[in-house]
Design a protein around this nucleic acid. Sequence first.
DNA 1: GCCTCCATGTAACACGTTACATGATTCG
DNA 2: CGAATCATGTAACGTGTTACATGGAGGC
Lengths: 197, 197
Amino acid sequence: MSLPHAILTALLEKPSSGLELTRRFDKSIGFFWPATHQQIYRELGKLEQAGLIRALPSAQPTRGQKKEYEVLPAGRAELTSWASGPQDPKPVRDALLLRMRAAAVVGTEGLEAELRRHLDLHRQQLAHYDAIEKRDFPPGKDTTENRLRHLVLRGGIHLESFWITWLEEALTEIGRPDALRQPPSPGSDDPVSPSGA
Amino acid sequence: MSLPHAILTALLEKPSSGLELTRRFDKSIGFFWPATHQQIYRELGKLEQAGLIRALPSAQPTRGQKKEYEVLPAGRAELTSWASGPQDPKPVRDALLLRMRAAAVVGTEGLEAELRRHLDLHRQQLAHYDAIEKRDFPPGKDTTENRLRHLVLRGGIHLESFWITWLEEALTEIGRPDALRQPPSPGSDDPVSPSGA
DNA sequence: GCCTCCATGTAACACGTTACATGATTCG
DNA sequence: CGAATCATGTAACGTGTTACATGGAGGC
């Protein structure tokens, strides 16, 4: 139930058409909630039907014609309530950690190269965020909205830094002398808990 | 395409029935790839049909009767290939960051309490991981498999630490003198980029 | 016999992903 | 007028989520 709220947020920041939203997602909200244009059109339809947004009257409803949306009071209320209520954090779901776990069973072939590749990608992303931070959040301009948006960006920065740190640790570790022998014995005991419980 | 591979990994570690898998997921693989029993049964069916696993002959196929699976050579091959090939990291998708962004538009009511709550949850999870680390990865026992599994766990530990750090930073920041005034002006400019580009 | 727990499963829906279809506008 | 681009959409599918259904085994 997050995409509709992401869209409401974006529309409150600035009324837009579907494609405009898509592009704006790609360079800001989409960093922590990506969405394709198909998802966005689908949600815009639902939000309009639910009476949370409406198409600006200026636009004709013919196909291929730009259609701008704005948030209605009910939409703002819905967003406010969603943003202020409790919501548990969603558990992590990460394929790289999983593949590492698989490598413990079927062998580490190709693993080191993959870790290096990911390390590089995360460094690029971090550089990207750093550039945005320099550009958009210079000292001063200290409004409440900006502080909050800055915090979100710093979340992204910390997250990329986490990956970089961990990947470097992992590369060091699997590079150590005896750590690169091939597939281990089958039938070893349970995942994180060889000692039970 | 990750759940089937998570299941193959778990089954290689130890042949199991659906419920056993579910329980083992809950305390190890599920930390970074959660799955409910319904998902697991569904995938077990697909994997069996695809010829990657098979039910152990000892078990009868009546409803309500335990059914154990083991991985076939084709399954191991599939897992090996999946674990060694390239796969781009999936972009982040996090509701708390999103809600913070929304709060920049509709106001910060309830935000601080929610941040504290999350902080607490992440501290608990970190404590949990720390306990597992102490129990399962004492110095020594330095096989390749254990090193890899330890690295995965350390990934979880780093990740929780990231959240704790960031949440503490956020709480400090929104606690600062002028940062808690109510809803900001509507119609402010673009998300991360008030200055454009 | 009844309740509880173990175990396997069905059904329906929500959401994300990918590929493709179609109309409008602009520019050479 | 033809091609490229902008813009909105359809369709089909994979996976995750939630609620519920069914059968067997053991204890009281």
